[in-house]
């Protein structure tokens, strides 16, 4: 299926986010070859220039490496994966905190709510 895209962000960076998430989840292994620009464009139903930009951006970040005549490969550096995981974690927490503050909770109450939720879930097991 062609993927759906959010309106708030350029498509090239949404595809970059997806590749990073697949890497962090272990769905793409370190050093694995990524689909060619055209294959990726067909899979995602987007303009190949968009994928070119995605790969360029990921290369600039050091997440992928392009090897002349061979294609684009995921980085082999495990530290990179840990760093990306930390980045994603921070983004998720920030969004969560913003939502909780939005409904009027103090930071103390937010931390308490998280603790209670985890304790409750542990008990339910």
């Amino acid at each position: 299926m062609t993927e759906e895209f959010k309106t708030s962000k350029p498509i090239y960076s949404q595809i970059a986010d997806r590749i990073i998430q697949q890497f962090v989840r272990g769905e793409i292994r370190p050093g694995e070859k990524l689909p060619s620009v055209r294959e990726m464009a067909i899979q995602s139903g987007v303009n190949p220039n968009t994928i070119q930009r995605t790969y360029g951006e990921l290369e600039r970040m050091g997440v992928v490496e392009s090897r002349r005549g061979q294609g684009t490969f995921m980085t082999e550096q495990i530290e990179m994966r840990n760093q990306l995981r930390a980045d994603i974690q921070r983004d998720i927490v920030a969004a969560f905190i913003e939502n909780m503050r939005g409904i009027g909770l103090e930071d103390r109450e937010i931390a308490y709510a998280v603790e209670q939720f985890l304790v409750k879930r542990e008990e339910d097991k």
Binding site: T7, S8, K9, P10, I11, Y12, R53
Partner: peptide, 10 residues
Amino acid sequence: EELREEKGLS
């Protein structure tokens, strides 16, 4: 792509 980046619109 600029439309999304600058105005957040599809």
